[in-house]
Write a protein that binds this DNA or RNA. Structure first.
Length: 806
DNA sequence: ATAGGGTTAG
């Protein structure tokens, strides 16, 4: 060991060579790595001079501070090398310098060097070190430092504790943060602010507000920091508009009205859709920065004020940033400027940018431009879970369930062992994909997803549970839909709408109505447009005519909700059901909307059910004007004409269909047994258990005493003109071998006896099958649930929940 | 000398 080293009290453990060298030698070589473009200073007399216990020259210390404070860490390092390191202060200056530059790892390395050198850290050291541990997101280092803090007795220092609170909050350890806070011998405003903003940061807005209140009760006056956090909490917690307004008033009274505070106020009003309040705050701001403009644009864009959003955007001219565009995009759907904004973003060089690209996917998805959304998604260099979720949602929203499921499976099968950054479906993913399962009717896969929901601990998430309710209901399992609904602790309007609709489509309108009154009397949740849509659906499907009218009339009168076109559709169904078709027609003519194909379709269905060809022809004409490829419309006419024996009309429609390129959809039914989905077409003999299925069908048919096929007039007509192969096809299409019966029979023999047999059918069930299923439910003593293209029929003990009208 | 801060996509 050199004389130089021996006279120095400072030794340094070298990690690289395991030697113990003098700090001077080692540091110089190590620092050379950091300070690449400068020559390191050579040891000289000055250093020998400084090796003594003499304190550092005040001018040197001042210079070091100046370097560090202005971010010149290279210069600071040089100077540091030449100074006496027995002094804690110089270490603190260095650590602080690195921390403020964001060189957190460097700061932490300096701290450990300091400890290893034998210098005792003081109460000034720790706040910086802890901040660096937070910045480096290193829970382990932070906890180690915390241990040292306790050992050295700094755990009563306000500054140290305040930084510990922020550290733990930043790393999501709110319990540790709270413990530090609770055990502090004295707290100041910063302690309170740290805990209030911390709870907000970990997503617990409620506790944030609770602490804010407690802070005031303890006699602390909220400052601008407290106000900003509390306003943020109000924005993230439901029903806190009042509280937000109170805080706004407090800010005004206390004269705290700087740009940042006002921007927080603005954001709070924006999130509560209080556009005029937001405008007032924005207009009253003496100087606005880009953030304020962005918030105002977002406020307009998300509240149906697209034009104003664009006006703001124009006023900003080129002073826009990526966030401006992200906020502007929701307005594009309304203004139809999506592509323009996309182009603008490209020209300004804002792309690629994950959040902006994700916002573009949403925008295209909302506007029905799935292909554009897909193009953005496919070209993204960096994708996060949100991007995947948006793309899945875009597919689902536009009915591309197959693509949605494919993408979801890709995400699902992600190689999670590859590294920790791999993407794991979250509650949003689940809530987005579940409707696709509901639409694609794959109950077994939906169940698998439910299992995942439980495993991933999303089973108390309202949004997830709501979509599970919907999925189960649409897949035919009303019982499990109800179970999920009952599991929702915090029921929102969507929860209620989902369950009301579930009972409605299953033909239990009475229960829907009861649930509605429970909703308005006890739950405290206010009904919205969709609630009434579900309710009117329930009334129309279950034939509750008077109630339907009552609800329709009370919508506007009692709840201030204007009926939309969807409500009129259900009303046409409802009126049509009574058989008063002229009244239904008049209702359509008097409604304040241009009738859609769906509205006329509703009248068409009613005229078919009441066998009124004249009205049917009129309604069909209207439908075909708008949708000349509407298969269902042609088929319905075809059936009505053939039942009436109007063969020339039958042929005319057939010709029309051919010219329009429309063909009858092949009717098929599916049933799930032991997790496997079986598909049947009419007269299908392709199933491995075909013989067994037909045997069962025979037995059940005999039990229900269905009469041998009568040679109906229509049948005779067809037969007489048919070629042999067509005749064979016709025979296969006999109601006695309809797919729905085949699927039901397989269901009867391969599912548990206690459970209902659930069959899905892509077309409307024919009268004869309906009758068959009614009787079959009685003789087999099984509940049979059949979902057709619109509703579910629950056959039980000889009766159907649809009351024989569908 | 030290600690705490506003905007964005689902």
């Amino acid at each position: 060991m050199s004389a130089l080293a021996r006279c120095s009290p400072i030794y340094y453990n070298c990690d690289a060579c395991k030697c113990v060298s003098s700090s001077q030698n080692h540091q110089t070589s190590e620092n050379r790595n950091l300070v690449t473009n400068r020559r390191s200073s050579k040891p000289n007399r000055l250093i020998l001079h400084n090796r003594s216990k003499n304190p550092n020259d005040p001018s040197l210390t001042r210079a070091l501070r100046e370097f560090a404070d202005s971010g010149l860490m290279e210069d600071a390092l040089h100077l540091f090398d030449e100074m006496n390191k027995a002094d804690v202060f110089v270490w603190n200056v260095m650590i602080k310098g690195f921390t403020t530059c964001g060189l957190y790892h460097e700061a932490l390395r300096f701290y450990s060097r300091m400890v290893l050198t034998g210098i005792k850290a003081d109460s000034f050291t720790y706040p910086f070190v802890i901040k660096s541990a937070a910045g480096a997101s290193s829970l382990l280092e932070g906890k180690t430092v915390h241990a040292a803090v306790i050992k050295l007795g700094f755990d009563s220092d306000v500054y140290v504790c305040n930084s510990l609170i922020s550290f733990y909050m930043k790393l999501g350890c709110e319990r540790d943060a709270e413990k530090v806070f609770d055990e502090m011998p004295e707290r100041d405003v910063v302690s309170w602010n740290s805990i209030v903003s911390g709870f907000l940061a970990v997503g617990d807005g409620v506790r944030s507000l609770v602490m804010f209140k407690e802070m005031m009760e303890c006699g602390f006056k909220p400052d601008r920091f407290s106000i900003m956090s509390a306003l943020g909490a109000c924005s993230h917690v439901e029903d806190c508009l009042r509280m937000g307004k109170e805080i706004h008033c407090y800010a005004i009274r206390s004269g705290i009205e700087d740009v940042m505070v006002l921007t927080s106020v603005l954001d709070m009003y924006s999130r509560y859709s209080e556009v005029s309040y937001a405008e007032r705050v924005f207009n009253g701001m003496s100087n606005r920065n880009i953030v304020a403009w962005n918030v105002m644009i977002g406020c307009y864009a998300r509240n149906g004020r697209g034009v104003d959003a664009f006006l703001c955007f124009q006023k900003m001219s080129e002073r826009t940033d990526v966030i401006t565009l992200i906020n502007l995009l929701p307005a594009c759907e309304e203004i139809l400027e999506g592509r323009t904004v996309h182009g603008y973003a490209t020209r300004r060089g804002f792309l690629p940018h994950v959040v902006l690209e994700t916002a573009l996917i949403d925008m295209y998805g909302e506007g029905g431009k799935v292909k554009s959304a897909e193009a953005v998604f496919d070209r993204m260099g960096e994708k996060n879970l949100v991007s995947w979720n948006s793309m899945i949602a875009a597919y689902v929203r536009n009915g591309e369930n197959y693509s949605a499921l494919k993408l979801f499976r890709e995400l699902w099968d992600w190689d999670w062992d590859w590294d920790s950054s791999s993407l794991v479906p979250d509650s949003t993913t689940i809530a987005s994909i579940l409707p696709a399962y509901a639409e694609s009717l794959s109950l077994s896969e939906g169940r698998q997803l439910h299992a995942y929901v439980v495993k991933a601990r999303y089973s108390s998430n309202t949004i997830v549970l709501n979509s599970l309710v919907h999925m189960y209901a649409m897949c035919g399992d009303l019982e499990d839909a109800r179970k999920c609904f009952d599991q929702v602790v915090f029921k929102d309007v969507v929860s209620w709408n989902s369950i009301i609709m579930a009972y409605a489509v299953h033909g239990f309108g009475r229960i829907s109505v009861c649930l509605f009154s429970e909703m308005v009397t006890t739950s405290g949740v206010s009904p919205n447009k969709s609630t009434f849509a579900s309710l009117l659906a329930a009334c129309s499907i279950s034939g509750m005519i008077d109630e339907g009218w009552d609800y329709f009339n009370s919508m506007k009168r009692e709840y201030g909700i204007d009926p939309g076109i969807e409500h009129y559709v259900y009303m046409v169904d409802l009126i049509g059901r009574t058989g008063n078709l002229s009244s239904a027609k008049r209702f359509i003519e008097d409604m304040p909307f241009v009738p859609t194909a769906r509205v006329w379709g509703s009248l068409l269905k009613a005229s078919r059910n009441h066998n009124d060809i004249t009205v049917a022809e009129f309604a069909a004409e209207q439908v075909l004007k708008m949708e000349h490829d509407n298969t269902g419309c042609y088929v319905l006419l075809l059936n009505m004409y053939s039942e009436a024996g109007r063969w020339e009309d039958v042929d005319r429609i057939k010709l029309l269909m051919k010219s329009q390129g429309v063909s009858k959809t092949t009717s098929c039914s599916t049933v799930v047994t032991r997790g496997r989905t079986h598909v049947f077409t009419n007269g299908d003999r392709s199933h491995v258990e075909t013989n067994k299925i037909y045997e069962v069908l025979d037995i059940v048919s005999r039990m229900v005493e269905e009469e041998e096929e009568e040679e109906e007039e229509s049948y005779v007509h067809c037969v007489s003109k048919m070629r042999p192969e067509t005749l064979l096809k016709k025979k296969r299409n006999s109601p006695r071998r309809h797919s729905v019966r085949l699927a039901t029979c397989l269901g009867l023999i391969s599912t548990e006896t206690g459970r209902a047999v659930v069959v899905r059918n892509n077309t409307r069930i024919c009268r004869r099958c309906h009758e068959f299923l009614e009787k079959a439910s009685k003789v087999t003593r099984r509940e049979i649930v059949v979902g057709d293209s619109k509703i579910f029929h629950h056959f039980s003990n000889g009766c159907c929940s649809c009351g024989n009208y569908w």
